[in-house]
């Protein structure tokens, strides 16, 4: 049961790179496996390393349709799977006065009155689909139970209609910030991928790609400073998105090399807590901020 998007690990890396997503070997290998084994991919990692971006990039490369389920506290069956269109059912009943009961009953629980929500949409889709279940950890534990049937067999059971099975498996990506531990049952059904901060070399390529016009030497310095900040014991270490923001800031300021003044003034782009800024400034031997 493959989704059949990719032919090899290199193929994944090359095609993702073409859309502007530079994948580390771990990312490329795991995406390839998710495609080949037809299993959902659970992506964890700190905020801002490109977890959601990965799903979008895969969508773009494969020309598939993106179906997204954004999880939040209190998301439930009727938001994730399907809902009966009550208003329309009522209308149908009122319109059909004089019909026998049997006719009405069989009628109002038909496809016509079913409102598909993201999971059902993805399962029923005839065209290639990427299903993105974003921030899975924000949803309540009960929703995980709901996902189990979908993720293991790619089918959904609607009591009134029967079981709907996927005609083609969607390429499924779940993301999580680990604010809650996901259940073992869910993890077992997925391939696990941890996207951490990229290696220096890769991050430099990402910065150069995302911020065209930035001098290579400056990009290298930017990545080195960010690397040093990540090695510090901070409340919130800068992520890739912050590195890119910082590079853009430097470009906008017209800085052609890093010096104490520039770093001091722009540290707020990288660090979001005053304690962290003070701490980093002390470690980097900047004068008082």
């Amino acid at each position: 049961m493959t989704t059949g998007f990719f032919s090899s690990v290199d193929d994944v890396a090359d095609r993702l790179a073409a859309t502007g997503y530079l994948a580390s070997p771990a990312v490329a290998t795991t995406v390839f496996l998710a495609d080949r084994l037809g299993k959902p991919l659970l992506v964890e990692g700190p905020a801002g390393v490109g977890k959601t971006e990965l799903a979008k990039a895969v969508t773009e490369v494969t020309g598939a349709r993106l179906v997204r389920l954004q999880c939040y506290e209190g998301v439930d069956e009727s938001r994730a799977l399907y809902e009966w269109n009550h208003a329309k059912q009522l209308l149908r009943i009122t319109a059909g006065r004089g019909e026998s009961w049997d006719e009405t009953r069989t009628d109002i629980f038909g496809e016509e009155f079913l409102l598909p929500r993201p999971l059902l949409t993805a399962i029923r889709s005839e065209q290639p689909t990427v299903l993105l279940i974003d921030e899975t950890d924000k949803a309540d534990v009960e929703v995980e139970g709901l996902l189990l049937e979908v993720l293991s067999d790619f089918q959904i059971t609607v009591p009134e209609l029967g079981t709907i099975k996927a005609t083609r498996r969607p390429f499924t990506v779940l993301t999580s910030n680990a604010s809650r531990e996901l259940s073992e049952a869910l993890r077992r059904r997925c391939l696990f991928l941890y996207v951490g901060f990229p290696e220096e070399e890769l991050e430099r390529r990402i910065v150069t790609l995302k911020v065209p016009g930035l001098d290579d030497a400056l990009a290298a310095s930017v990545v080195r400073v960010v690397g040093a900040l990540r090695a510090m014991d901070l409340r919130k270490v800068p992520s890739v998105s912050e590195t890119i923001d910082w590079a853009r800031t430097l470009l906008a300021l017209g800085a052609d090399r890093l010096d104490e003044g520039v770093v001091r003034e722009t540290l707020g782009v990288l660090l979001k807590h005053q304690d962290d800024i003070v701490r980093a400034a002390a470690k980097l031997d900047l004068d008082a901020v």
């Binding site: 290998t29 795991t30 496996l33 993890r187 696990f192």
Partner: peptide
């Protein structure tokens, strides 16, 4: 052919957390 890919493939299928 590639040891790191073997490593990542096993990590993806066998691990449940970082």
């Amino acid at each position: 052919t590639d040891r790191e890919r073997v490593r990542e493939a096993l990590a993806a299928t066998l691990l449940h957390g970082e």
